[in-house]
């Protein structure tokens, strides 16, 4: 009897893990789908001691690098419509990726807290309190700015306030 209930419990946990991971996969799948396309830059950041040290050197700001230690994952897709190419390959990729982002990413699970529309600019910023990992938050930026496309996903033990402080910290050191 006991063995059976343990088995059931085990399967239940396994199933839950698979379901939960499946949700996460919508994001991973999307980014990996476009990771090797011409004209698209894909960056997948997971902290490692070497990388964190590099970050610290680059920012030259203790507060900023401390905050970044709480970030567990960053995924980035950027693409540019190139000059003459706008009507051709890179242009099509650009639009495809953007439209796909709106369809495939789990936007329904996030809350949109900012949208900017201005001519050729359409930027959405979304926010989510992660259910799977307590206190972790997720941020999603889907931005089409003229000829530049950026899709960025961040997960970490950082909140809006913390992330908001970053540009001020960086700004002080003349990073931009």
């Amino acid at each position: 009897m006991k063995a059976k209930s343990i088995l059931i419990a085990f399967i239940a946990v396994l199933a839950t893990t698979i379901v939960l991971n499946a949700k996460d996969d919508r994001i991973t799948k999307f980014f990996e789908k476009y990771s090797n396309i011409e004209g698209v830059t894909y960056v997948n950041f997971t902290p490692s001691p070497a990388l964190m040290e590099g970050m610290e050197e680059k920012t030259q700001d203790k507060e900023a690098s401390d905050m970044m230690k709480n970030i567990s994952s960053v995924k980035i897709l950027t693409s540019k419509k190139r000059g003459e190419d706008k009507q051709n390959k890179s242009g099509k990729n650009f639009d495809n990726i953007y439209n796909d982002a709106l369809k495939s990413l789990p936007i329904d699970e996030f809350e949109k807290f900012l949208e900017v529309k201005e001519g050729k600019k359409d930027v959405k910023m979304l926010y989510k309190s992660s259910k799977e990992k307590a206190k972790a938050k997720e941020f999603l930026l889907i931005a089409k700015e003229g000829d530049d496309l950026s899709i960025i996903w961040v997960e970490g033990l950082v909140d809006l306030k913390d992330l908001g402080k970053l540009s001020k910290m960086m700004g002080n050191k003349g990073m931009k």
Partner: peptide, 14 residues
């Protein structure tokens, strides 16, 4: 530009 924000989220967390 048109900017839409969700004040509730921001006010609680900033």
């Amino acid at each position: 530009s048109t900017i839409e924000i969700n004040e509730e989220i921001l006010e609680n967390r900033m």
